[in-house]
Computed example of a mutant assay.
Amino acid sequence: MVTLVIGGSGSGKSEYAEGLILSRGKGKRIYIATMKPWDEECEMRILRHRQMRADKEFDTVECYRNLKHLDFQDHGAFSDVLLECMSNLVSNELFGLGEKGEKLLSPKETVDEVMAGVIRLKEQAENIIIVTNEVFSDGDHYSRQTNQYREVLGKINRQVACIADEVIEVTAGIPIFLKGIN
Results as ranks from 00 to 15, higher is better:
Thr3Asn: 00
Val5Arg: 03
Val5Trp: 06
Ile6Asn: 01
Ile6Lys: 06
Gly7Lys: 05
Gly8Pro: 09
Lys13Phe: 13
Glu15Trp: 09
Gly19Asn: 15
Gly19Lys: 13
Leu20Ala: 08
Ile21Val: 15
Leu22Tyr: 03
Gly25His: 04
Gly27Asn: 11
Tyr31Lys: 07
Thr34Trp: 00
Met35Glu: 10
Asp39Thr: 04
Cys42Val: 02
Cys42Trp: 13
Glu43Leu: 11
Arg50Ser: 12
Met52Tyr: 00
Lys56Ala: 11
Glu57Ala: 08
Val61Gly: 11
Glu62Ser: 14
Arg65Pro: 07
Lys68Met: 08
Asp71Ile: 01
Phe72Thr: 10
Gln73Ala: 15
His75Asn: 13
Gly76Phe: 08
Phe78Pro: 00
Asp80Cys: 06
Leu83Lys: 03
Met86Arg: 10
Ser87Val: 03
Ser87Gln: 05
Asn88Gly: 07
Leu89Lys: 12
Leu97Tyr: 05
Leu97Ile: 07
Lys108Val: 03
Val111Pro: 02
Asp112Trp: 00
Glu113Pro: 05
Gly117Thr: 08
Gly117Glu: 07
Val118Leu: 08
Leu121Val: 13
Lys122Ala: 12
Ala125Asp: 05
Ile128Arg: 08
Val131Ala: 09
Thr132Asp: 11
Asn133Thr: 03
Asn133Trp: 06
Val135Asp: 00
Val135Thr: 14
Asp140His: 06
Tyr142Ser: 05
Arg144Thr: 11
Arg144Lys: 14
Thr146Leu: 11
Tyr149Gln: 10
Ile156Tyr: 01
Val160Pro: 04
Ala161Tyr: 07
Ala161Leu: 05
Ala161Ser: 14
Glu166Asp: 12
Val167His: 02
Ile176Met: 13
Phe177Trp: 14
Asn182Thr: 07
